[in-house]
Computed example of a mutant assay.
Amino acid sequence: MLIINVCSLNYASLGQSVEAVFTQTTTQINTCIANASKVHFVGHSLGGLVIRAYLQNNPRVFNGNTLGKVVLIGTPNKGSELANHLNGSWLMHIAGGVSQSLITGSKSLGNTINELDINLGVIAGTKASTLTQHYFKGKNDGLVSVESTKLRAC
């Protein structure tokens, strides 16, 4: 009999520091995968960065064939042009450290996490929002550009 345990992480990102989110999610992931023979990850948006950081900081997941599939959906791997636009605003100040880390460039959270040598799938949306379209140069989902979701191998 195959037993599958699906865990959904529960964390707040508004008003939180990156370190607080990573600490909280690491505890949840460790609890979820205890005694697992195979671990698959699926993350949406910030969740994809949480996964990348977890895998970077917890290499024990790689022991043997423990690591299964990893899929990132709409993850701002290189930041978000929309975050650039909001950077320095009162809204971004209230949103906190996590939101502020989603700018593009070398200080972007996604750019501070190593690109791991693993099989990883990236899915990006192309249904732009009329409210945010003018902040992007190329295809985007209204929050993240397709280019920004890409990692080196994409």
Rank of each mutant, 00 (worst) to 15 (best):
T25R: 03
L72P: 03
S37D: 11
A36W: 09
G48V: 14
V70A: 04
K38L: 13
L109C: 06
S17F: 12
S108A: 15
G48E: 08
Q24D: 15
N119I: 11
V98M: 04
K69G: 12
V39C: 05
N84Y: 13
I33M: 11
V144H: 00
S37K: 04
I113W: 03
T75D: 01
A34T: 05
A128F: 10
I94Q: 13
S17K: 05
A128S: 15
T26Q: 12
S8C: 12
G79S: 04
K137E: 13
G110H: 03
L55W: 00
Q100C: 06
T130P: 08
T66W: 10
G88M: 10
Y54I: 04
G47R: 00
S17R: 01
L46W: 07
I73W: 03
H134T: 07
L55N: 01
A153F: 07
T75K: 00
C7F: 11
L116A: 08
G48K: 05
L143W: 11
F136Q: 00
N111D: 09
L9D: 10
S8V: 11
V18C: 04
G88H: 05
Q24E: 15
N30D: 15
A124D: 08
N10S: 15
L67E: 07
T126A: 06
N77E: 08
H85P: 00
V144E: 02
G43I: 05
Y11R: 06
G74I: 02
M92P: 00
N140I: 02
M1R: 14
L14A: 10
K69W: 13
S80H: 04
N140T: 05
L46T: 08
G96M: 06
H40R: 07
V21G: 00
G48I: 13
K38A: 13
G97S: 07
T112E: 08
T104W: 04
T23C: 08
G138Q: 14
V98L: 09
H134G: 11
G79W: 00
L116R: 00
V21T: 09
I4M: 15
I94R: 13
A83R: 01
N65C: 12
Q16D: 12
E19F: 14
C154D: 12
L109E: 01
G48R: 02
A20T: 14
Q28C: 04
S13G: 07
G47Q: 09
S145T: 02
N65Q: 07
I73A: 01
L46V: 11
T26A: 06
L131P: 06
V18I: 14
M92H: 04
V42Q: 08
C154Y: 14
T25L: 02
H44I: 10
E147H: 06
L109K: 02
H85D: 07
M92G: 01
M92S: 06
Y11A: 03
F62H: 05
L86A: 14
N119H: 10
L72R: 03
P76M: 13
L109Q: 02
V39G: 04
A128Q: 11
F22Y: 06
S101W: 07
P76L: 15
N111P: 03
H85I: 06
I73M: 10
A12M: 11
N58T: 10
I113T: 05
R152Y: 06
